[in-house]
Design a protein around this nucleic acid. Sequence first.
DNA 1: ATATCTGCAAAGACTTTGCATGAGA
DNA 2: TCTCATGCAAAGTCTTTGCAGATAT
Lengths: 156, 156
Amino acid sequence: MPRGMKMGPRWWHGKLKGGGYRLTIPREAILNILSKTSEHLSAEEIYMSAHKTYPAIGLTTIYRTLDLLVQMGLIFKFDFGDKRARYELAEGLQGKAHHHHLLCTACGKIVDYTDFVDEEKELLNQTEKGLSKKYNFRITNHLIQFYGLCGKCQMK
Amino acid sequence: MPRGMKMGPRWWHGKLKGGGYRLTIPREAILNILSKTSEHLSAEEIYMSAHKTYPAIGLTTIYRTLDLLVQMGLIFKFDFGDKRARYELAEGLQGKAHHHHLLCTACGKIVDYTDFVDEEKELLNQTEKGLSKKYNFRITNHLIQFYGLCGKCQMK
DNA sequence: ATATCTGCAAAGACTTTGCATGAGA
DNA sequence: TCTCATGCAAAGTCTTTGCAGATAT
């Protein structure tokens, strides 16, 4: 059984309660969906998926819940240049490995890669230290993305 | 006199003509503005600036021109998470050095840094090679951004 | 001359807000 | 019970599109 797929009280119950937030059906639904996919879903896609098991859900709630989860650090919000925000479970949760993204500028394909991340991490740590000192920033996060053409699109 | 500030036929005349594009007042105005600033202007800001010297200009034209210039590779389009696209002259033009961005998540301040870019470049080259081979991508570009709190915002 | 470019107005797409109802603890 | 959360509808923001008139070459 894959990591993070076990049943029982969901790992996020404590996180929500600890933050003083209620455990509601929409929140459960959204976290369930994000836990089970490896895709980078948009609000609309999450809405459609959640709608199947809980038809009463509204798109507004999706947006509000996603904002909350981002703020709590449970999920990440990305902009891949296709005009809509996309979300994924934060690293470290559910056995998710830290990864970066490789994007096809022609078809929009997104590849998560975990290779080379160790080397990157080393450099990033140094860079963060240097930048922190020089510009007096407290760095909390970074974003790395590569853009190019995937195999299929190269042939067209 | 700073590099790139000299008068005479603008460096972009040839680029536009070579691409089969006309040399128009709006295009001149927009390129002039982007050449003279070190800020990361939004379409609206460029519009307001251009409007001062050429009041007849329309916001639509700003968007269309920016799209054209991005497509030609003369400028870069960025998303800094504030809901509007921001633009800057491409590296290598007008003596612009290759740089990355450091963003304050509280006040939106953007710092261009050129330090550490050499080290980053080395790693990125290796990573690009590895990714190209493993995922069969032809990588054309990359994005690196650091997020954190600037000095002022740390104190609040 | 004529194909390209522009400006206006309207439409489009995604996201946010106001407010009354409903539900978790 | 009593806040907090939700859903609907409407509004907001940035960006794109349609089209007739203007312009560069």
